[in-house]
């Protein structure tokens, strides 16, 4: 009699457990968009890989031009055969990017300037679309016409310390080296969780 009672209890508990797991499985919501690579890998890839492309090299059938500016700007003028996908709408078009990746085509993003394109580029990159490149151009308008110019990225435009020295020389002032007050060194303390004092004892 006792044995039977025990079996009954075990079977009830196990059925409940299986039910809980099943319900969990069925109601599990798969997130719509997921990252494909973590931040460290992304950093490693973007610092090593060459993902820039210049204006001269884009005339290949494998390339699809994508304009990340707003629709308004796009209608004013755009590069030939370009498709308009505004940056905030990028997630709604993820099917399009998936298709591009499947068909081994390379998406080339461009916008007003490379800094603007940088944002959707890095975002898509983290979602796993590594078939994208960044067109290093600056777009501006002149007499109602879109003018596209190649431009540099992260290029230092002037030698600042040389400029400062030059200015000091020109001004013929004896500049006594200023004693700048060094602010106290920045020490950032990482907060450690306090270990709890061992409890108990009698």
């Amino acid at each position: 009699m006792k044995e039977l009672e025990k079996i009954k209890r075990i079977s009830i508990v196990s059925i409940l457990f299986i039910l809980a797991v099943l319900i969990g499985l069925l109601t599990y919501k798969r997130p719509k968009n997921t990252y494909a690579i973590n931040t460290e890998k992304t950093l490693e890839k973007i610092t090593n890989n060459h993902f820039f492309i210049t204006l001269e090299n884009i005339n290949t059938p494998d390339y699809v031009l994508i304009d990340v500016r707003s629709q308004n700007e796009f209608e004013k003028g755009h590069l030939e055969h370009a498709i308009n996908i505004h940056t905030p709408e990028i997630l709604n078009n993820s099917a399009f990017f998936k298709e591009l990746k499947k068909s081994n085509k390379i998406a080339i993003l461009y916008g007003e300037n490379p800094q603007q394109v940088n944002i959707p580029f890095l975002f898509l990159y983290q979602l796993g679309y590594d078939n994208i490149k960044l067109l290093t151009v600056k777009n501006s308008y002149s007499q109602n016409k879109l003018i596209t110019k190649t431009c540099d990225i992260e290029k230092l435009e002037a030698d600042i310390s040389a400029f400062i020295n030059e200015s000091v020389k020109n001004s013929k002032i004896k500049v006594t080296p200023k004693k700048t007050i060094q602010p106290p060194k920045k020490i950032i303390t990482v907060q450690k969780k306090k270990k709890k004092a061992p409890e108990g004892g009698c």
Binding site: P114, I119, L122, F123, I153, E154, E157
Partner: peptide
């Protein structure tokens, strides 16, 4: 030098 690299760092 411009805000390209800085933006990337910020996004990550």
């Amino acid at each position: 030098n411009d805000n390209f690299d800085a933006d990337q760092a910020w996004i990550l």
